[in-house]
Amino acid sequence: MTEEQSSMGGYTPPHNTSELSKKEKREFRRQERKDEQRRAQKKGGYKRMFMWAGVAAVIVLVVYGIVIGVMKNGSNSATPSSVDAVSQTDWVKGERTARVTIIEYADFQCPACKAYYPVVKSLSKEFSGSDVAFVLRHFPLRSIHANAESSSRAAEAAGLQGKFWGMHDLLFERQGDWEKLRDPKDTFKAYAQEIGIDVARFESDMDSDAVKDAVNAGFASGISAGVNSTPSFFINGNYISNPANIDEFRTHITNALNASS
């Protein structure tokens, strides 16, 4: 069998097609097309197999790349490094001379800050004020929270009458009541009354330059420390990524206490 014959898949064409009848010619052409189709299918089959394998590989690589990227970003997102020491203007729960100081940059309208509020409160009760001091600095995310600024001012204004932490607690505990209000001032005034401060003075203080400056100072301090999200916690001046739970937070504090002894 010649090379040409073997390529026809075993079919042996006659040497001279002019000698064939019409029926035989048709059969010959039909057989030729069939062979051609078989070869094309075989070639196309490999091509398709490689294409689908390539597509699967690209999908796997893309997913892998994204997962690695997110994991890497998560570990690198601790951009803030250190922060200013506690000053006389800071709101402190505990003693300013405590061995460990935890500074929190917070936005009262931030749901995550609200989620951390009971954790921080519980830890502040667990550790003595001489060991651990908790500081809150304003970091109102004005661009995404319409009432962030006014709630920070409400806490600051209440602080001028010695009730910063009382207002702080109410703002977090009732965040859902005021976060979506067009003007939450009346609600804040009701809180002021509830914690027993002079409401008229509170209202006037909320709009005072001193209160505005205090809120701005907190925000500026956060920006200079590299804070870009809330809550952001610093232990003894060093940034920690947000603990996943109270136990992790407690471990951070205990380690800091051990290091300071």
Binding site: V62, V70, M71, P111, A112, L141, S143, N228, S232, N242
Partner: peptide, 27 residues
């Protein structure tokens, strides 16, 4: 698909969510 995989990866692997200065994704 890339966008949705990113959001899914952030959901399962990202840091404990906070509120960001730049965007409202966390909310």
């Amino acid at each position: 698909f890339i966008d949705a995989v990113y959001l899914t990866a952030v959901h399962f692997l990202g840091q404990t969510p906070g509120c960001s200065l730049l965007e409202g994704c966390e909310e």
